[in-house]
Design a protein around this nucleic acid. Structure first.
Lengths: 336, 336
DNA sequence: ATTTGCACCTAAACCGGTTTAAATGGTTGT
DNA sequence: ACAACCATTTAAACCGGTTTAGGTGCAAAT
């Protein structure tokens, strides 16, 4: 006879469903089931390769041993790495990660959050792409621990694990200044993201602290959809000022790669500016002169996420102190 | 009063649980619930933001609207892209993907397969890292449709969606031959993977068809764990033969990147061999002379996976014909 | 001989849905 | 007036676990 449920097993062994459940859920000793009975149950289960259905368990315990994870873009190696690490860590703790990409769509993100809630995930790790003005998240009650990572959502009151973007950009800029650069240009995208905002702030602080004036003619906000074209224009513009830029700060890996590409393949001017990039990618190993970069600590970030989540899971629902706190992870300056 | 279940809702509305269930599961018309009642239920549910628990539904229907997806390595952009696409497509069909990386560990893969089965996923998409000799997979009965992709598992009898690796490598090699290369070297890793095997076969066929002899002194099997070092040695060896290699075929993106790196940064010999790589990566945009490559059709592969899975899901369990078939997706030769 | 205590086991309720089989009540046909 | 029929609704069983509250039976204590 095929064993499909705990009931089947109990029937075959001539004992009660309850006892079998106790044993199979690891509460055997706790509930005072005799060693003998426990062994009998375990042996029979093993022999028939029977594993209790997680679905039944989900329903009665209200927990699913599944973690929700939403990233804005899985094709971005940054998020891919984080995803990979987070899901590995949870795997080690007996969770399976239900991970999805919102593809930078607010609507999709909302839909996914609802879908994951409905599926009863035990918690949600979220790198949100909701715009700052959007308070949907603060109103929506997930009913389970939620940890934001990478990107903050001001006013949501949720705990956040993020890279210290401000300090990273500050370090990067300071390094350029230390090398004698005075005319430093800045290129950024999606300035509504908290990450980018902080990086911009870090850049400005470094400039200010060095007594360098802010020059709007050396700043460019680029639209990713027209990346190639706009990057080229921006770089050309920077170099055609009366006091041309001698260095350019790129605020993420996409911009960094594109700038390298642009200088490498399409560049016509004799003088190439130095590049400094927030994010470190393999590509930088291949180009001259070397790109200065700050590397985001993928693994530390992932570890902190998992750590924070586990803490919330173990905490009593009422003892959610520490909620809303921002945990910052340090970057490392990388000089080639 | 907070509405937590269908029962609560029914109670409030003074109608039966059954009727509410019919309406909320979209069977209202089918089961002949009056328009009036349907509207009443829907309005009330909307007003209280009530969505029936997926967990309860899972248990009673035996389906979870969740797809299992296992890839060997999420940090590999190839798998990251596929993952992203597959999960997007399923999202559009109302599924959530529970996706995990086996990190090239057979043990972890087995564990994950079991874990996903226990969680009652409706199907499994699997890029297996089980070694060919390993028949665990064929013995294990998942109980739900399983579709292998990218990597085959001979003898498993499971349907496979894969890139036409043989043809891709053949094209790549033929292109080199057409350009006049006669002394073509080959570098590969993990030759136990079906993908690599096919690529090796494709390479050899192209050589044979061109009447070129196989030269074992121009072949190298590299261990990824010692990539940098071994790649350098291999390339040096190829170029130090009495008839040195004028071109090198690299059988995947990792090898391609490393070869580029090696020639670019550490190369001391005057003559650089041409490179041809199976897999196309952005890096190739940056190097001279251009790398010839075949691009893997990420999206087509993902589409075919989802398509195959949906077919299996809709098929009657007994009508699983077509099982074990291999669907091949064509590569595109990319010349820069 | 009754009580107490302990070790071990179990009936039944519960989690939140779906589904089967049957009931309800009103209209129509004869 | 009665059966047949239809549209609509529902009680109860079921999915596969967990958990509560209580039952055994046996030995030691009173």
């Amino acid at each position: 006879m095929k064993i499909r449920s705990i009931k089947d097993l109990a029937l075959q062994l001539g004992i009660s469903k309850t006892t079998v459940s106790f044993v199979l859920s690891g509460q055997g000793d706790l509930r005072g089931v005799s060693k003998e009975t426990q062994e009998k149950v375990l042996a029979y289960a093993r022999q028939h390769q029977f594993k209790p259905s997680q679905l039944g368990r989900n329903l009665s315990t209200g927990r699913s041993q599944t973690m929700g994870l939403i990233v804005p873009n899985l094709s971005d190696p940054f998020y891919a790495r984080i995803f990979s690490r987070i899901s590995d860590l949870f795997y080690q703790k007996g969770y399976v990660v239900a991970g999805v990409s919102s593809d930078e769509s607010e609507e999709k993100e909302r839909h996914l959050i609802k879908a994951l809630k409905q599926r009863g995930v035990d918690g949600l790790l979220l790198a949100t792409c909701l715009l700052p003005g959007n308070d949907w998240l603060s109103k929506f009650s997930f009913g389970r621990p939620v940890v934001l990572f990478d990107r903050e959502s001001p006013g949501s009151g949720l705990p956040v694990v993020a890279v210290d973007n401000e300090q990273g950009a500050w370090r990067l800029t300071r390094e350029l200044i230390a090398r004698g650069h005075r005319d430093i240009a800045l290129v950024y995208v999606t300035p509504w993201l908290s990450t980018i905002q902080h990086r911009i702030n870090g850049f400005r602080r470094a400039m200010r602290e060095a007594g360098l004036e802010e020059r709007l003619d050396l700043e460019s906000h680029i639209d990713v959809r027209d990346l190639r074209h706009q990057m080229h224009n921006a770089l050309m513009r920077f170099c055609n000022q009366q006091r041309p830029a001698t260095a350019v700060v790129l605020l993420n890996n996409v911009l960094g790669a594109e700038a390298v590409y642009c200088l490498h393949r399409q560049w016509t001017l004799p003088q190439k500016p130095a590049l400094a990039c927030f994010d470190d990618i393999d590509l930088f190993d291949f180009v001259h002169p070397p790109v200065i970069s700050v590397a985001q600590p993928f693994d530390d970030l992932a570890d902190a996420c998992v750590d924070t989540m586990m803490r919330l899971l173990e905490a009593k629902p009422e003892a959610m102190e520490g909620t809303g706190a921002v945990k910052l992870i340090e970057t490392t300056l990388k000089i080639r």
